[in-house]
């Protein structure tokens, strides 16, 4: 369920929508198989950044590349590389949770028997084995979040984009998700994770990109967002400049 990772590069990417700044200029680089944790308060542009990398939002300025090319979900090759929760997985109302995972895995080439086994194991790892036979409308909000993560992890990907995967999860589940993500990274997948969770940030242990929200009426020369050394919980992890990028 993994693939060789791909590199992501953001060069002074910003998004302005109808005069409203969704993302101030941001630069970062993630090597193939690396991790970038994106943090910042609500409205700082974390989701927008992930959407730019996913190719569903065009940057107003700057450039974004995935594996050296502009993100374009209309390209089949790009869709094969990138998975995530930038846009929530669409559930099928009449399939159980285990069948969702197995069906997705099957369509990506996993043999049927192996896909069913994989589904059972993955749901077990996420601590929701007892939900395997539930339909989507029978899940709580936290369980729905876990289901979305399970569906995303059911397919191979070279780049995983996760938007606040810790939402509505208890601390144990956050740790489990972090563990699964670390395994995917160890197998070569690049991770780009937006989060509010200190625990997830610490568990993933990657460089941290801290975003600041745009201030209406602020001068244009505000510093760009980029991967920073700060005194947060990521002090002991290398920042993106270690990858040879520094775009302040």
């Amino acid at each position: 369920m993994t693939g060789a990772g791909v590199a992501v590069e953001l060069d002074a990417v910003s998004v302005v929508l109808d005069g409203s700044t969704l993302l101030t200029p941001t630069s970062a680089a993630v090597p193939a198989g690396g991790t970038l944790v994106v943090r910042g308060p609500n409205g700082s542009g974390k989701s927008t950044l992930l959407r730019v990398v996913a190719g569903v939002r065009a940057p107003t300025t700057g450039t974004a590349t995935v594996d050296g090319r502009a993100p374009d979900p209309r390209r089949r090759a790009f869709r094969q590389l990138v998975a995530g929760t930038v846009e929530s997985p669409v559930p099928a109302r009449d399939l159980t949770l285990a069948e969702h995972v197995a069906l997705v895995a099957t369509t990506w080439g996993t043999p049927v028997r192996a896909a069913r086994t994989f589904a059972t194991e993955l749901l077990g790892r996420l601590g929701v084995a007892e939900l395997a036979a539930r339909f989507p409308h029978e899940l709580s909000s936290g369980q729905t979040q876990l289901a979305a993560i399970a569906v995303v992890l059911a397919r191979p990907s070279a780049l995983l984009l996760l938007d606040e995967p810790e939402q509505r999860l208890d601390a144990d589940r956050v740790a489990t998700v972090a563990e699964l993500l670390a395994e995917r990274r160890a197998a070569g997948t690049t991770l780009l994770v937006a989060t509010h969770s200190d625990a997830l940030e610490a568990a993933l242990g990657g460089p941290v990109l801290r975003l600041v929200p745009a201030v209406p009426g602020a001068p244009d020369d505000v510093p760009d967002n980029d991967v920073a050394d700060d005194d947060g919980p990521d002090d002991d992890v290398p920042d993106a400049s270690a990858d040879g990028r520094s775009d302040a």
Partner: peptide
């Protein structure tokens, strides 16, 4: 037609399934 409705609900760039 529920299956087709599900397929129609998937976004243009959705890569949920490994099929075009």
């Amino acid at each position: 037609c529920d299956g087709l409705r599900h397929a129609a609900a998937l976004g243009e760039g959705s890569a949920q399934y490994g099929l075009s």
